[in-house]
Simulated assay, not measured.
Amino acid sequence: MGNTVVSIDNLVKRYGENVAVDHFSLNIEEGEILGLLGPNGSGKTTTINCLLSLLTFDKGDIKIWGKEMSPDAYDIKSQIGVVMQNVAVIDTLNVYENVDFFCGLYIKDKATRKQYVEEALEFTGLTEFKKQKPKKLSGGLLRRLNIACGIAHKPKLVIFDEPTVAVDPQSRNAILEGIKKMNKAGATIIYTSHYMEEVEELCSRVVIMDHGKNIANGTTNELKSSLISREKIRIGLPDKSPKILDGLKEINHVYKVKEDGDDVVIKCDGGEHNLVHVLSYLTDNNVPFGRVTTELPTLNDVFLEITGKELRD
Rank of each mutant, 00 (worst) to 15 (best):
Y106W: 08
R172E: 00
T4N: 11
M182L: 15
K309A: 06
V117S: 08
P238Y: 04
A73W: 12
K13R: 15
I215T: 10
L275M: 13
I208G: 02
C203N: 12
E259N: 09
N27Y: 04
I8V: 12
E197V: 06
I208N: 05
G35N: 10
I175G: 01
G308S: 05
G66Y: 13
T124M: 14
G60S: 03
K130F: 09
V6P: 04
K13M: 01
T124Q: 09
T192I: 07
M84C: 05
T220F: 02
Y96P: 00
Q85M: 11
V165I: 08
N10D: 10
I189L: 10
G236T: 12
D91M: 00
I8C: 04
L37P: 06
V12P: 03
G290Q: 13
A166G: 06
T307E: 13
G212D: 07
I215Y: 11
L93P: 08
V12T: 13
G139S: 10
V207H: 09
K309M: 01
G38S: 07
H277D: 15
E177I: 00
N40M: 10
L248N: 03
R113H: 08
E250P: 01
L34D: 05
D91T: 00
K77S: 05
K44D: 04
T56L: 09
L145T: 01
V207D: 02
V265R: 02
E119F: 10
I179K: 07
E97Q: 14
G41P: 03
G212M: 01
Q115P: 00
T4E: 14
Y15A: 02
I233Q: 02
E162M: 01
N214K: 15
L126S: 11
N252F: 02
K224F: 11
C203G: 06
N27R: 08
L237Q: 04
C203M: 07
T220W: 01
V302G: 03
T47Y: 07
L296I: 10
S280I: 02
K131P: 07
P134N: 04
A185L: 06
E201D: 13
D9Q: 14
L157P: 01
N285K: 15
V21H: 10
G270K: 12
S53V: 13
G212C: 06
L37K: 09
Q115S: 13
V265N: 02
K267L: 11
